[in-house]
Design a protein around this nucleic acid. Structure first.
Lengths: 134, 134
DNA sequence: CAGTATCCCAACGGATACTG
DNA sequence: CAGTATCCGTTGGGATACTG
């Protein structure tokens, strides 16, 4: 157990990790969280457990490859549970874990922000594209 | 101007767009916002205008290609301004627009979430990887 | 229904070199 | 310093076909 300097201890209270640093493992986590499908799957699951097919229906246009891949990663990262019910055919339900519920507001915020500010972004793009390219 | 049914009018108050729909333009915006570099650039700019080289320093490990590309997209979408000061050598400052400031808390939330929950994710991964692969 | 496995193209993104 | 251009390997992600 290493001793800590006063300067280190001051910072250590709040942040053990810093995504601004290149070697920080949060970089990798950040790149996983900043994923279009994650931003849709997490909000889709907040109403309660959903089946694979239900999710595919709610998240229109998602390929089953990406849906499965996204769910697997979320499961591994402890954000989603996968429950198999033995029946014919088999039934699989996905649900948010407590950790997943903690992430939910953040993911919803991105999705909502996009929906709420789409028009403003459109206007900005029109303005940008209109200016003579110097 | 089309008339609206009661059911439509009720929904229309809050959402004109829905990222769950495949054709919705917010899908494209969402995929831009869910970007690792955006999640780092926006928080980095909140302290005030920053130069290209300053940003590159704060966001350790970012290539200048990705930094420039990210800044260009953010500028086009109206989230960031680019100010050129004619001097030798030329000085370029980037700053958040009001719209960018609105996005800031959302981006900070993701970055902070990753930093705050890194350990829990690590534990979840260890548990997941430890279980016999059925 | 849920999932795996291929194939394959397009986009991401780093490295490097060059311009104003 | 800021930025563009090129090269090129890696990854993302859709389409399709097949298994339990």
């Amino acid at each position: 157990m290493p001793t800590t300097t006063a300067a280190q201890g001051r910072e250590q209270d709040k942040r053990e990790y810093d995504a601004f640093l290149a070697g920080c493992p949060t970089r990798e986590l950040l790149s996983r969280l900043t994923d279009k499908w994650v931003a849709l799957v997490i909000p889709a699951l907040v109403d309660g457990p959903q089946r694979h097919s239900e999710l595919a229906h709610r998240i229109a246009g998602v390929s089953q490859k990406m849906l499965t891949q996204t769910l697997r990663t979320l499961e591994r990262d402890g954000l989603v549970t996968r429950t198999v019910t033995a029946s014919v055919p088999v039934r699989v339900d996905y649900a948010l874990t407590p950790l997943g519920h903690e992430l939910f507001p953040v993911m919803l915020a991105i999705k909502s922000w996009a929906e709420a500010h789409m028009d403003q972004v459109f206007e900005a793009r029109a303005r940008f594209d209109a200016q003579p390219q110097a």
